[in-house]
Design a protein around this nucleic acid. Structure first.
Lengths: 232, 232
DNA sequence: CGTTTGTCAAGAGCATTGCTCTCGAAGTAG
DNA sequence: CTACTTCGAGAGCAATGCTCTTGACAAACG
């Protein structure tokens, strides 16, 4: 007698097919950009287009799956890179995080555009994307919180407006940072916007004719950033 | 006898038609997002779709025209706002520039996405867009150059890498800033990326659940920025 | 074992898109 | 008046996302 399989062959085949579709879709994304065509990936898989709808209710659903995978892929890469730096070296932890973000963005240009570029027209992010989506920025703020805890990061003595303070408190409790002062959090958000702004400029070709050595440029931007944050 | 019109009625009608098409396209852009449909604007104008091709060789050509108009519209708004601030008030000039940018972006969300968001798939920016496209950032750097000239902005004494220095020299000569030191230019680019990063975050919904009062948030970000630039 | 239930790929079909071509009407210039 | 150009209309082609039906096959159950 054979043991009942833990997952039926059917469910297994289905999971494999879903993975194949996503893989083909990713390749199409990298090749032709965000104009993802269900029929095209169906052709790649030697399958008729209507069969796709057994696995994804719509093209947007496929996109959602890709976006979700993208968020976790990016977050994994970022967390791994940051995790390899000694805890006490705050500046290098931030720099490692930023480089990992940029490296991932350059390797997955169109996926990055999907995550951080202009949103797709009719698409609305479902609730379960916000978890993976916030992992990198939560990690970044964790570095700052660590610095405060270790007493090596000086807390800016700015006077925040009431609304900004409320917003920062909101973010703080959301991410679970008790020891992170709002003024420093605001600085972190500033640096975060700068990092993604710089990466976006490079990726979307807004710096052509202006910058030739993007690595050095990014490196210098990061040096200014860590100084601005009081990490170095 | 009637005088020969300076521009023939035909050329005039043509120019008007082009303007009508662009206007309808802008409205469609604002309503349905970047998925601009030639046939839809043709329907709006009560005209058959093939007639569009008498005025724009392709859908991308229409987009190019909209992008070009967008750049000049944004640049006009920014230059006007900045021009109203007394020349000596460097910080307020920068702040006015930034607010004008954000205001324009909020009023023309999809056009801003066209200009600064992820690029449209097959689209390549023609050469004649780079002029209007750089007007705002040239203006921003001009404020910094002005500050150096007036001797009120301190020049950062950073040591730039050779590549970064070369890039900054490149940008400097391109924009015609002789008196702007590379280290300050690099700071300017940093602030520029931060500004567009922050605006993009707000516009593309990357700050929902984190920020509630975007005006105050942007205001505070600007205060940090002008301090970082040495303008206040 | 045999029947039922559910899942699957295939195909036809609908409305939409960008774009091309041809045709006749109408305006313009000599 | 005649020759030329420009225009809008319409048909048509190759795509797209998505729906529906049909027939085959596997899993589950009695």
């Amino acid at each position: 007698m054979t043991a009942r399989p833990l997952v039926s062959p059917r469910a297994r085949a289905r999971a494999e097919m879903i993975e194949q579709i996503k893989q083909a879709a990713r390749e199409h994304l990298a090749a032709e950009g965000p104009n993802l065509s269900l029929r095209a990936v169906a052709r790649d898989l030697g399958v008729v287009s209507s069969a796709m709808y057994r696995y994804f209710a719509s093209r947007d659903d496929l996109l959602t799956a890709l976006i979700l995978d993208g968020y976790t892929s990016l977050a994994d890469a970022v967390e791994e890179a940051e995790g390899e730096v000694p805890r006490a070296n705050l500046a290098n932890r931030w720099i490692a995080l930023a480089w990992a973000t940029r490296d991932w963005a350059l390797e997955h240009r169109h996926e990055y555009a999907l995550l951080y570029g202009s949103p797709v027209p009719g698409y609305v992010a479902p609730q379960d994307t916000i978890g993976p989506a916030t992992r990198p920025v939560v990690l970044a703020m964790h570095i700052l919180a660590d610095g405060v805890e270790r007493g090596v990061v000086e807390v800016p003595a700015d006077r925040l407006g009431r609304e900004v303070r409320a917003d920062m408190e909101n973010v703080r409790t959301f991410a679970g940072f008790e020891g992170l002062p709002p003024t420093l959090l605001a600085r972190g958000m500033s640096a975060w916007a700068q990092m993604h702004g710089t990466i976006g400029f490079e990726l979307f070709g807004r710096l052509t004719n202006a910058v030739s050595d993007y690595d050095s440029y990014f490196d210098y931007q990061l040096r200014m950033m860590t100084r601005f944050l009081g990490l170095s």
